[in-house]
Write a protein that binds this DNA or RNA. Sequence first.
DNA 1: TATTGTTATACTCTATAACTATA
DNA 2: TATAGTTATAGAGTATAACAATA
Lengths: 153, 153
Amino acid sequence: MTPDLSYLLDHTSHVLRTQMSAQLGEIGLTPRMHCVLVHALEEERTQAQLAEIGDMDKTTMVVTVDALEKAGLAERRPSGADRRARIIAVTEEGAKVAKESQKIVDHVHGSTLDSLPDDERDVLVRALNRLTRGHLQTPAEGPRTARRARQKG
Amino acid sequence: MTPDLSYLLDHTSHVLRTQMSAQLGEIGLTPRMHCVLVHALEEERTQAQLAEIGDMDKTTMVVTVDALEKAGLAERRPSGADRRARIIAVTEEGAKVAKESQKIVDHVHGSTLDSLPDDERDVLVRALNRLTRGHLQTPAEGPRTARRARQKG
DNA sequence: TATTGTTATACTCTATAACTATA
DNA sequence: TATAGTTATAGAGTATAACAATA
């Protein structure tokens, strides 16, 4: 009998996400805010670059940066190189929070992996990495959702 | 360094779901329709029971059964035991389609697992099962989304 | 009073299109 | 012409509330 891989992956990823959201929520972050914060800290990056890294739409990015600015964790700054682009600069407070949130993320991942026997832990990660780079690399095409033109006004 | 388990599980489950949806879509089914069809075939079951099994809301179940009826794959029949309840009866055509869709599901799962080395394959499934029954059994509580009362009329 | 299935609808999430300013 | 970021909003998905029939 074939194991129900869909159920196993859906369930584990769903529960892990709820745990992550709940834990990050304790310090006022969403997973997306954490992602942007961390990658904006690594080097000077524009919204488009951060959207690419986090696999978000640019409009989703706008909302996420709005939230970070409102919370005083990051700011939009004009890019010297391209006056259309905005660099996302992390504030001092934002850097502190990012350190904290990275600890939370590592702890949630770590405690999950620690619940497995040593041999299973390593192989699980290796197998998921292999699938991610191989058979489950690319999403299958969904049916193109036709969309009406937006109302002018 | 802690592996990014969130990314690995999210990505693999997402891609697997798109592949499954695309393959089942070829014969006009959604994953939910397949799920209902298969469990309705096993024994006489009401909508509520099938919703429980597939972890769907009862209103989502209504939509799913509507789709199955429209496609001529299942019918609502009054339950002898409880006149409020409806038994979901699979049609002859529905049984054929269910056989087909089960083949598709097994093939999608099978080809994914077959892309892994033997030793990784078994351990992956064992580890995911262990997480599902253990550390990642229960979703964390989300913030209760307050909802306005519905308009009368 | 509680439950099954239904309808209507409200909410969330995300993506699309159009827009402004640059390039 | 194309791109970065913004705004408004469409659309999918889903969950909530109220309801009718029945328990």
